[in-house]
Design a protein around this nucleic acid. Structure first.
Lengths: 147, 147
DNA sequence: CCTAGGTGGACAAGTACCTTGACCATATGG
DNA sequence: CCATATGGTCAAGGTACTTGTCCACCTAGG
């Protein structure tokens, strides 16, 4: 019997939907009401090192105008601040504020909650195995689905 | 060492992105250029039995106006047709046309391609195990992520 | 019956988020 | 130094949604 591709695909998409919904809910529960999932992808990029709006655009797969607008949103709400790039006077680095780091931490905690829930239903060993398979398959690339 | 929730979450989202991108590409390769991922969710709902726009709206998690607009799009392009509901004169059933069924089959084939690719990198046994874990976790619910 | 509320659908207006196009300031390689 | 590339911004437009309103029809309670 062949592996049922469409069924697995649907399952993964449902799991994604659960994950996104769960993280959004967890963020709301922790007091962050003004962030959308796409902001999470921006945080993921910025939590390592600061980046420019153009970097962010490439990472998210959108135009630099869209990335700049998203950054505006997050600056306005206190999650990011813009700083001059000491090595390029054209560029403005996007840097996480304290609130931005708190939001990133809250999103991580919410993700942990969801995954812990999976462990309760599946067993920790199975979740580890799932994580290993996912890690092997998920080539590091664009994070955000193009829809 | 605790399971790394955020890393698993990121992996699943990347896997979803791969899946969606792969299916979209597979549909283009098969000659379907005018469908978006959200249409796939509509097809998934309609491939079983016809449904009304309101059914579709609930299934997709959008307003019935948005569902009706989406259905218009698919009717215009020949994927769906509207038929009167014999049991309710208000309702108009959405039914897959031949082209709609062909598109659904193409999406399934594209999903199979992606999953086959996974099998090549992971081994069929691991993919089966992944499918089992996903199946156990993916409670049947809203398919589409809320973004 | 028949009336009251619920549900399917459509029309209209507004909004959020993204695009394309044009432009300027600064970097960088010949 | 000049040509070209790159980071950023402004402006206009588009698409896919939303909310609000309305009507046709169904359905359950007197």
């Amino acid at each position: 019997m062949p592996t049922n591709g469409p069924a697995l695909a649907a399952g993964i998409l449902q799991l994604s939907a659960q994950l996104v919904d769960g993280i959004q809910q967890g963020l709301r529960d922790r007091g962050f009401h003004d962030v959308r999932p796409v902001h999470g992808y921006a945080f993921a990029r910025l939590s390592g090192a600061p980046a420019t709006a153009s970097d962010l655009a490439a990472h998210l797969g959108v135009t630099k105008q869209a990335a700049a607008q998203l950054a505006d949103h997050l600056v306005t709400r206190g999650y990011l601040r813009r700083e001059p790039d000491p090595t390029d006077r054209r560029a403005r680095l996007l840097v996480l504020t304290e609130r931005g780091r708190a939001c990133t931490a809250a999103a991580d905690a919410a993700a942990d909650d969801v995954v812990r829930g999976w462990g309760g239903r599946l067993g920790a060993g199975e979740v580890d195995r799932l994580a290993a398979a996912v890690h092997a398959l998920a080539v590091p690339g664009r994070l955000r689905p193009a829809w």
